[in-house]
Design a protein around this nucleic acid. Structure first.
Lengths: 246, 246
DNA sequence: TCCTTCCCGTTGCCGTGGCAACGAAGTTGC
DNA sequence: GCAACTTCGTTGCCACGGCAACGGGAAGGA
């Protein structure tokens, strides 16, 4: 990961519903360009670029950081000792990540931590030091705003985790897939959309087998519910998809 | 739910690791009794008692509230149109709940919201109004502390959701059960413990069938991994349980 | 005490989906 | 253009677990 030029991140409005869409970051919402520039020095915000499959942030890092994705896509993954990993969440531009990582990693830096954020594509991030944010001696006009935004960002992330739990509640694979496609369609606001996951990654996200996902997708296409090719999906019978996800 | 006498809630230390244990609340950590009393008026903190199966908090409420459980046990549930519900999380004394409920419920108060906190046993709660907390005209010495504590509480809750996702990653029911028992054992700090869930509730938490859970528990007992009777569990072969949860 | 109700254990059935293996198609590098 | 590699689709096998039904035991109320 290499340092990258730091430029003004356009904060738009601050409506939580808009968070996650490209061009908006809930964490820096409501900041003027002047305040943002101030924050970069006061709060030690730095920009970095990363490559695909590169580890963007890990528990084993020198110290915990908050990150905001500027461009590209990231995966919030959990790696297990036996080699396989689960995909907890997809991180898109504007999203916060790395929140809540306790500095317990300090204790055992030699153990490769099981939690990490890796690059799904190449991209850039902003990293900021939570210690600077909670340090009372740091007086910055932007700090209060960022602090409030941070709470909203964390709540937004929690909402995403609850959405994933909602997807995972289905006992049938068809229900999980239908729910995922419905959520993804609503997020994009279209019935035709492309997903940021490959088949194998989708299986990891749905906690299922890749072959089984392919098989069930083929069945759903055969039943006329959906259509797809690679990462491009279309909801043919939206009502049927909604019914399948109960 | 009826109003209940409001008394000083003993805040202990503020170490996140202690949060969730009886007698400590991360949200009010670091407050003196004087500050706590001040906060009750400034932030509009009120105490209520609730009964078993009573709805403690729901999205359809007049306005969003944060809650802290004082005594008893609560369930963070998600109710689905077809009647069944999933158990998202168990709320124990000191835990925050109701965070992040958007006031979108205002828009459609007639629809029974799918998300709620219900009483698993009778108990008491403290409710506070987030609007008062974010209102800049309210000047209270305790506000800053509570605001910081709120962020930590939300992060702590997120950690619990991630733990549940970790339990749910297992494709086999035995893996999920083993992981749950391991987590519960670590939380209690003992290899003998009682769980706050009935069989049916445990099945709802694990996103599985009640009969299947009973069957798999019987197999694990037969294999010498665990022992149990009703809600009382004991890890016989802790190594085997750990292996089953990978 | 008796009755009702709820919760838990058990079991047979069988469908869903995990697993492994293979082939096709797309991608990258030389 | 060819080869090595990766990703996706497909399929057979069969075990795990969902579902339904039943029975027993504990709990609560009259």
């Amino acid at each position: 990961m290499r340092a990258a030029p730091l430029q003004f991140w356009p904060p738009t409005g601050g409506r939580q519903a808009q968070a996650g869409s490209a061009g908006a970051s809930l964490l820096f919402a409501g900041l003027s360009e002047e305040q943002f520039t101030c924050a970069t020095s006061c709060l030690g915000i730095q920009a970095f670029s990363f490559e695909k499959d590169e580890q963007v942030l890990a528990c084993q890092g020198a110290r915990p950081h908050y990150g905001v994705l500027v461009s590209g896509t990231g995966f919030d993954v959990r790696q297990h000792p036996n080699g396989d990993q689960t995909l907890v969440d997809v991180i898109e531009p504007g999203d916060l990540f790395g929140e809540g990582w306790q500095p317990r990693a300090w204790a055992a830096p030699e153990v490769p931590r099981e939690r990490a954020v890796i690059g799904a594509t190449a991209g850039t991030v902003l990293l900021l030091d939570p210690a600077r944010l909670s340090d009372p001696t740091v007086a910055c006009p932007a700090k209060a705003i960022v602090h409030t935004n941070l709470l909203n960002s964390v709540l937004h992330k929690q909402e995403r985790l609850r959405t994933k739990l909602e997807i995972l509640r289905h006992r049938s694979l068809r229900g999980r897939i239908a729910n995922y496609l419905l959520v993804e369609s609503q997020r994009r606001g279209k019935s035709q959309f492309t997903i940021p996951l490959s088949r194998g990654e989708l299986a990891q996200y749905l906690h299922a087998d890749r072959a089984a996902v392919s098989r069930e997708l083929a069945r759903m296409k055969h039943d006329g519910m959906i259509d797809y090719h690679r990462n491009a999906f279309a909801l043919r019978d939206e009502q049927a998809v909604a019914t399948a996800s109960e």
